[in-house]
Design a protein around this nucleic acid. Structure first.
Length: 444
RNA sequence: GCAGCAGUAGCUCAGUUGGUUAGAGCACUAGUUUGUGGAACUAGGGGUCGGUGGUUCGAAUCCACCCUGCUGUACCA
């Protein structure tokens, strides 16, 4: 007995992977159609690259180890490491390097694709998710960086977010570089610990983040995180720099000037925006939601950003001799869907089929006749796809959210009329077969 | 990865200081209604109490280890 049970396949999903239901998928489709519309309008090309890349192509080899960095899903194929892509930027850099001579410069492309990350999942945060990515390759113009922010906000608003629902935060790697000059610290480790601490100000608040700049911090669970070991003078320098409402970084100022020309106002200079440590070289952006997001238990959770990006002028040149500046922005679509589902005023209509109930299997010809008339007019409809009493059929129609059922039994067939029952109101009416479609359209 | 908390029916959970055949609500199935859903009533199915080992006459309950989940934290290109 025991053994037999153990042989059954598991119905559980791997950690961080989920089944996605129609409700969610329709919102996602809605977002995607908005993205395509906006991107076409802004003149971007649509591109697709494969899910797998050679691990070294997407920059995920630990220099001193044979295995790829953890964080990516990888396997060894014929002595070569392959990895599932973890974002769409690295594959783009690879694509540009590979096709450099053919593609137009500058090159503007957008991409929608699944990416995978081997990390700890959380609410609205999965190990497999859909990402949208838009990039400008081959231009140093900050017009490009600014436009990416403008375009993302247009997408978000098209999806139903108000201006108060989100903020595009901008900063620049150059701004933090200046701080480090003042601090006179050069240790790469100390710099990255400091940057990570700054990145957390948003979530933890300045007082907690300060501990991470100094000795370290104990979190709610009692876990201890080592800090950057800056002295109090250095922390003071950072504190003052963070207080500045405007950047003294030329690139940020320039982008803000362009925002003004676009009449784009929904941005905020925020020096605590850090993003990835590895490859950004100039302006960086992050898109944050301003409304509360709850988990399945109704607790308000730390949701973080739904997108971000920045300038990465060295990424393409990693592949060869092409010196090619670039800037890009991404949105995590599933995170946006998760958040959008929680906005109470956000609704998407789903078309559920009208159900034609089955009284007699020998009357299939009649049922199919009605079905064809309805489907001809694009009315979602079906013949009850099972066996059972009328009651069971009604329960089915109710459960799938069908707007109406059609009853066409002996009584109706004699009179040439069908009973149309509105499942919302419960009202029934006798309708001539020819008029059925029109009557149904009225109640949809 | 680290830390805290948790794991009992499909779901949400109760289960008293260890003590017979482990409970409830919702959901499911059938019926009350052989042509009528979303309400009600009746009946029924469904669990080796996350796993393994231990303590004990006896474990859902105590102990050890493992697994999984949640939350925080680290990493996040």
């Amino acid at each position: 007995m025991n053994k037999e049970k153990n042989l059954k396949p598991s119905k559980e999903l791997p950690l961080g992977f989920v089944d996605r239901q129609e409700k969610e998928l329709l919102i996602r489709d809605f977002i995607i159609s908005n993205i395509k519309e906006v991107m076409t309008k802004y003149g971007f090309q649509y591109l697709e690259t494969p899910s797998f890349e050679y691990t070294d192509s997407i920059g995920k080899f630990l220099p001193d180890k044979e295995r790829p960095d953890q964080g990516v899903f990888s396997f060894k194929d014929e002595n070569k490491w392959l990895s599932l892509r973890y974002d769409l930027t690295a594959p783009l850099a690879r694509y540009v390097a590979k096709n450099y001579l053919e593609i137009p410069k500058p090159f503007k492309r957008y991409q929608l694709g699944t990416v995978w990350r081997n990390e700890k999942p959380g609410p609205g945060r999965f190990r497999e998710f859909l990402q949208f990515d838009a990039d400008y390759v081959g231009t140093k113009s900050l017009l490009a960086d600014a436009e990416l922010c403008v375009l993302v906000s247009e997408i978000l608003e098209k999806c139903g977010l108000d201006k108060k629902d989100y903020t595009v935060k901008i900063s620049s790697r150059k701004f933090t570089d200046k701080i480090f000059e003042q601090l006179k610290i050069k240790s790469k480790e100390q710099i990255s610990t400091t940057l990570r601490a700054l990145d957390k100000i948003d979530r933890l608040g300045w007082e907690e983040a300060k501990k991470l700049l100094g000795e370290g911090r104990k979190d709610k669970s009692g876990d201890y995180t080592k800090g950057a070991n800056l002295n109090s003078d250095q922390i003071k320098i950072i504190e003052n720099a963070l207080k500045s409402k405007t950047s003294d970084s030329e690139d940020v100022l320039e982008i803000i000037r362009i925002f003004t020309d676009y009449n784009f106002e929904n941005y905020k200079f925020d020096p605590s925006v850090i993003r990835g440590l590895e490859y950004y070289t100039g302006p960086i952006f992050e898109v944050n939601l301003n409304f509360e997001v709850k988990n399945s238990k109704g607790q308000v959770i730390q949701f973080g950003s739904i997108g971000g990006g920045g300038r990465y002028d060295n990424l393409v040149s990693n592949f060869g001799n092409f010196d090619c500046p670039a800037t890009g922005i991404s949105i995590g679509l599933d995170r946006l869907v998760f958040a959008l589902m929680q906005k109470k005023d956000f609704k998407i209509k789903t078309a559920r089929p009208v159900v034609i109930c089955v009284f007699d299997k020998n009357k299939n010809k009649e049922y199919i006749g009605i079905l064809n008339k309805l489907r001809m007019l694009n009315i979602s409809s079906e013949i009850y796809p099972g066996e059972g009493k009328l009651k069971k059929q009604m329960e089915y129609a109710n459960k799938i959210g069908s707007p109406a059922v059609i009853l066409y039994g002996d009584d109706e067939i004699k009179s040439g009329k069908a009973t149309l029952k509105n499942l919302e109101s419960g009202k029934e009416s006798l309708v001539k077969i020819e008029d059925l479609a029109n009557e149904i359209k009225k109640l949809l």
